[in-house]
Design a binder for these strands. Structure first.
Lengths: 220, 220
DNA sequence: CACTTGACAGCACAAGTGTTTGATTGCTAT
DNA sequence: ATAGCAATCAAACACTTGTGCTGTCAAGTG
């Protein structure tokens, strides 16, 4: 059977295995590594298929040299260094996504730590105002934000309609994660959960503490 | 003479050579590569200094394995900050969450980027098998995974029912993001989207490429 | 001075690893 | 059938490469 690339199943598996091996070890596999882990009966079969893969441009080989396999799309060296973009963001605590609760110093989340964030989620130019909070509650579930997710917020005191913000209700000394709508003389804080009701407040009672710009979630 | 790192000049040269070699070839040098190019008279001298470098934490070696040298992750220029937990994960490309599309292995997206990920999303002990893919399509929307999100996968070839996996359909050479269910003699790949239908396949035609362990999303 | 230690040299061996050769299997076109 | 080809297998072979051993040399050290 051939696949869309014109590679046999075995060739696909070998190619995937090389990727995975290099990713895990930092150097290429030997022919016998491939043979053993893929349960191929002979080294010559591996060599045969490596040659085929090479002719199809899927990989390069430095002849005779042990582990001399390189993958064309890959930056040489399995441990790239410089061109990495990541940003350091402070993890300030926990935010309730359900009903506003007084800022909880609570529980095990004593991580006033710092977390690293992919550059994609925190643009360089505005980075210095970004911080992270762990979410408690499911009021934002329709916005794809679940309990225990980590949200990234950019500090700002104003927001436009529909933006997701961390809003503090001054009279309750409580912070909550909601969508923001300024409607005439009042502000509506809308959960993204069809089973929950919005909160209405006067502007003087609401202080915006930041806008959500990113979400991280672990499924482990 | 010793340098600031407590390394001898020869050790400095060897270390620099390994860096340069890996960058040039995509795989580590052998002891004799180092010996020849650095005009060292004996392989044992190289081995001697490699051992010293290893004890000083400048590199790792997989014993007996040829070219089994790996360099520990180094953040260029930056001092290691201990209390921060983050991990480097390779960004390998794009995965379709909707109908399976041919593996975009060869497109411009496979630039083998690397992203930084909070330690919470990628536990240290299993980190070596974690990689990232960008999601295309909305078939996993009910699992809180949206178009353009980044998913973190841990490489594994087996899965348990209900786990979310990257599955390759061999006959189509296509990879897709689905929930995995083994049902008797067939495998069901179930989208997390009530409007979409599952895919059924025989086990021989399905290869699991990893299990989803984390999600990153930008709302900027 | 005898002794130790670090660094190096030379060489041989053994293990790791790529290659080759010949035979086998299954399929297809003739 | 027969021939031809792709893919595979098994085993042997040859090169590559890590390791071990022995020795040298210079610089300490008591």
């Amino acid at each position: 059977m051939r696949t869309a690339d014109g590679l046999s199943q075995r060739q696909e598996r070998i190619l995937a295995y090389i990727h995975e091996f290099m990713h895990r070890h930092g150097y290429p596999p030997s022919i016998r590594d491939i043979q053993t882990d893929l349960k191929i009966s002979s080294t010559s079969v591996v060599a045969y298929n490596l040659k085929a893969l090479q002719e199809k441009g899927k990989l390069n080989r430095d002849g005779k040299v042990s582990r001399g396999i390189t993958l064309p799309n890959q930056v040489a060296g399995a441990q790239p260094i410089n061109h990495i973009r990541y940003h350091r963001v402070p993890m300030l605590g926990v935010i309730t996504a359900g009903s506003p609760l007084p800022n909880p110093e609570d529980t095990t989340t004593t991580d006033h730590d710092v977390i690293e964030v992919p550059a994609e989620l925190a643009p360089e130019d505005k980075l210095k105002d970004v911080y992270a909070l762990r979410v408690r509650g499911q009021s934002m579930i329709d916005a794809l934000i679940d309990d225990n997710d980590i949200v990234l917020l950019r500090f700002q005191e104003t927001a436009e309609n529909g933006q997701m913000v961390a809003a503090m209700l001054l009279d309750e000394n409580a912070v909550t994660l909601k969508k923001f709508y300024h409607e005439g003389q009042r502000i509506r804080l809308q959960p993204a959960n069809t089973t929950m009701e919005p909160i209405y407040a006067v502007p003087e009672n609401v202080r915006i503490q930041g806008r959500v710009v990113g979400v991280l979630r672990s499924l482990v």
